[in-house]
Simulated scan of single mutants.
Amino acid sequence: MKVKIVNQSSNPLPAYSTVLSAGMDLRANLEEDIVLKPLERVLVPTGLFIELPVGYEAQIRPRSGLALKKGITVLNTPGTIDADYRGEIGIILVNLSNQDFIISHGERICQMVIASHETVSWEHVEVLEETERGAGGFGHTGKN
């Protein structure tokens, strides 16, 4: 699939790290470092603008290494970029560690997955079909 992209940063275009990777790393587009303090959140610009085809979204997800090693994650995971959005991709990062984290220009801050989605139309009914599970949820099986 081809997706139109405008790159207003000096960073390379997002790319897959391996042949079977689902996500592409996005990089911070900064004029100066950002110091992200513990429990602080910030919107990090990427300098990227995309035009997705109808029926697709871009999902913004944390990088597992940053989450495990530094406690840095994407706050609204997964973030969704809709096909009709034309603004700059901005990433909401949060520092869940107890130490400051410095975000520098070019730092890989998240990953982006392009995924198809369906558009539903609701069918209003009075009763839903019964299932074995029924309305059970939130640990209803009792299994740990």
Rank of each mutant, 00 (worst) to 15 (best):
M1S: 12
K2F: 08
K2M: 11
K4D: 13
Q8T: 15
S9C: 03
N11T: 02
N11W: 02
N11M: 03
P12Q: 06
L13K: 06
P14N: 07
A15I: 12
A15S: 15
A15L: 10
S17A: 14
T18M: 00
V19M: 15
V19R: 09
L20Q: 11
S21P: 04
A22W: 09
G23D: 05
G23T: 00
R27C: 08
A28H: 02
A28T: 00
I34R: 06
I34E: 08
L36Y: 03
L36A: 05
K37E: 08
P38T: 06
V42C: 14
L43A: 12
P45A: 02
L48E: 05
L48T: 05
F49W: 07
V54S: 13
V54Y: 12
G55D: 04
G55Q: 02
Y56C: 13
E57M: 08
R61P: 04
S64K: 08
S64P: 08
G65W: 03
L66W: 04
L66V: 06
A67I: 01
K69P: 03
V74S: 00
V74Y: 02
N76G: 03
N76W: 00
T80M: 05
I81C: 01
D82I: 04
R86L: 11
G87M: 04
I91Y: 05
I92G: 02
V94F: 03
N95R: 06
N98V: 12
Q99E: 15
Q99Y: 12
Q99F: 11
D100G: 09
F101Q: 02
I102G: 10
S104F: 07
R108P: 00
C110Q: 08
Q111F: 03
M112T: 03
I114N: 07
A115N: 11
E118A: 15
V120T: 11
V120W: 10
S121A: 13
W122V: 14
E123R: 13
E123A: 12
H124W: 14
E126T: 12
V127W: 11
E129T: 11
E129D: 15
E130N: 14
T131P: 06
T131C: 08
E132S: 15
R133S: 10
R133K: 11
G134R: 01
A135V: 11
A135F: 10
G136F: 07
F138Q: 14
F138N: 14
F138A: 11
H140G: 03
H140A: 10
H140V: 04
G142H: 01
K143W: 07
K143V: 10
N144T: 10
N144H: 13
